[in-house]
Design a protein around this nucleic acid. Structure first.
Length: 189
DNA sequence: AGCGGGATTTTCT
DNA sequence: GAAAATCCCGCTT
């Protein structure tokens, strides 16, 4: 672990997920600095039937079992990328899916990549990856480095956070590991 | 406003 | 060979 501010990422995915709400992702793209705020997350770990890491370490999930603070990018439905921040210690198959972000700067750059605007820009896991041009080439990327950095902000108050079941999964539907910032317009659904 | 289907390819059984 | 941590469009109320 390079940075002390990343220490909390060593914890359980279900503790890390709400802690990431309000944190910033800074992306260098097309010569501009694009900044977004994380507003919706979901936790996944190896005890969890809905998690890619549930069946153990494979070629695909290798990054999830690696050191925290790196990016786990997967491709799904034949056309979409989704991105996670790896949590837990080395050897632990845990990660937090970034489901939605709020644009702060570089909005025109994102519109160029996403071909949409307003909340449609980033209110879903595959949408924000398209807006930020995140693909397999960033799988395993160290989030302390360019061109994509995680900037940790102070934890939000519990009253500002809503906790529900996760979206779009067929297993472990009742596990309440989805977290989002209450009343934020960029939250999905 | 809500429902249903299609796109399209990686990954694991 | 089937399912998948999704999204978009078109059709029906």
């Amino acid at each position: 672990m390079v940075s002390d501010t990343f220490d909390f990422l060593n914890g359980r995915a279900s503790d890390v997920a709400p802690r990431l709400l309000g944190c910033i992702l800074e992306r260098e793209l097309d010569g501009e600095v694009v900044r977004v705020k994380i507003v919706e997350t979901e936790a996944y770990d190896e005890t969890d039937a809905a998690s890619h890491s549930y069946k153990g370490r494979t070629q695909r999930t290798d990054i999830m079992f690696g050191p925290p603070g790196h990016l786990y990018v997967y491709f799904t439905y034949g056309m979409h990328y989704c991105c996670n921040i790896v949590a837990g210690g080395e050897g632990t198959g845990a990660a937090v899916l970034i489901r939605a972000v709020e644009p702060l700067s570089g909005i025109e750059v994102m519109e160029t990549h996403r071909l949409q605007s307003g909340v449609q820009l980033t209110n879903g896991p595959a949408k924000l990856c398209q807006a930020l041009a995140i693909n397999k080439s960033l799988n395993g990327h160290d989030l302390t480095k360019e061109p994509l950095r995680l900037i940790v902000e102070p934890a939000l108050a519990n009253e500002a956070i809503e906790q529900t079941v996760r979206i779009g999964i067929s297993k472990a539907k009742d596990v309440p590991w989805r977290f989002y910032i209450k009343d934020n317009p960029y939250v999905s659904r």
